[in-house]
Design a protein around this nucleic acid. Structure first.
Lengths: 195, 195
DNA sequence: GTCTATATCCAGATAGAC
DNA sequence: GTCTATCTGGATATAGAC
């Protein structure tokens, strides 16, 4: 007797596709109008629905923010895992700095959602927050493998995020701050080696 | 004949006092509820008025944000001007870094209003924005007096603001990032002297 | 200057027919 | 799953009496 083909749940697939479509539209809206300006009306209009229909896919507006928070962190986690691991610590720092800065400035609304708490009622669910924690742990582990003392990790994150926020706030789309990222790695390593 | 006493405009004084009172209440609200959560209802309630009465003092909600933006920048400007100017560049950098970091973390809502653009409809008026520009010019001038090349100014601002945002986002009220500010000055000067 | 009353609009969310 | 209709509440802002 032949093994039965695995049966695809076409309904579930379709549902997931629609959820993805809604989230894509939400990202477009926040990129264009700002993170706080997202409304279910606009979102529904963008995907060709009436607002109540969105509730078939997400329980609330905050559930949408939560899904976006999750997507953003998964994307960042993927980029962290895809990072090369060269022998030279300086090369490694530069690569990770560039990656993170690029991630931050390429989508300011996403950076605001992921890294600052600016939406009044929203807090990520524990499951999605766990992804953010994994990212930090991964970065921390990598640094220690390069022999950098653990307490310097915080210093490094502040250097990188400083570049991101200054660039976003003062010259979105430009490189007046992002171009410092390689020097940042120099400075940082020199400081680490100083003691 | 005796010179006439200068006549105080008691009505105008009273009016200014009320405006100040409203702004004080607004600061309290945004500190407690977040910058975006400010509403005229809450604000009026806090000063013992009905919402329409606020329009006797401010033309619109954005005018209130603008006045707050102005106040915040005036405060920062005053602190910049009050900064000591020691001979040693390192001491000067440390003092300015500490001052700025303290200013940022002591009121996250104010930092958000002044340094990031997070309120959808709000843009500061040219007059108030001019104050922010003066602050930057002042800091820039000071740095050049200490012999630091002009292009390093951006680097320094990113170092300091990185500490501020990381502290605000991840441990408001703590010092896990702010305590790095002296090292930041070391690192920065070392990098400047390297070339 | 402050109030009541109201205009206008928009938000997130729910009920229930189809 | 999607819709229409509606609820409920809140926002900024204005008109006009006192």
């Amino acid at each position: 007797m032949m093994a039965a083909e695995p049966i695809r749940d076409r309904r579930a697939e379709r549902r997931e596709a629609t959820k993805t479509e809604i989230l894509d539209a939400a990202w477009e809206l926040v990129r264009a109008e700002g993170l706080a300006a997202l409304t279910l009306r606009d979102l529904a209009a963008k995907v060709g629905m009436r607002p109540p229909s969105l509730y078939s896919y997400f329980d609330s507006k905050n559930a949408i923010y939560d899904a976006m928070f999750r997507q953003g962190n998964l994307e960042l986690l993927a980029r962290c895992e895809a990072l090369p691991e060269p022998e030279d610590p300086l090369d490694a720092l530069r690569a990770s700095g560039r990656m993170f800065v690029e991630f931050g400035v390429e989508d300011p609304a996403r950076a605001l959602l992921l890294f600052l708490r600016t939406i009044p009622g929203f807090e990520p669910s524990p499951e999605t927050y766990a992804i953010a924690v994994r990212i930090v742990e991964l970065a921390r582990t990598r640094m220690s493998r390069y022999g950098i003392p653990a307490d310097y990790f915080d210093l490094w994150t502040s250097l990188v995020s400083g570049v991101v926020w200054q660039q976003i706030a003062n010259e979105p789309g430009g490189d007046r701050w992002t171009r410092w990222v390689d020097d940042l790695a120099d400075m940082f390593l020199a400081q680490v080696n100083r003691r």
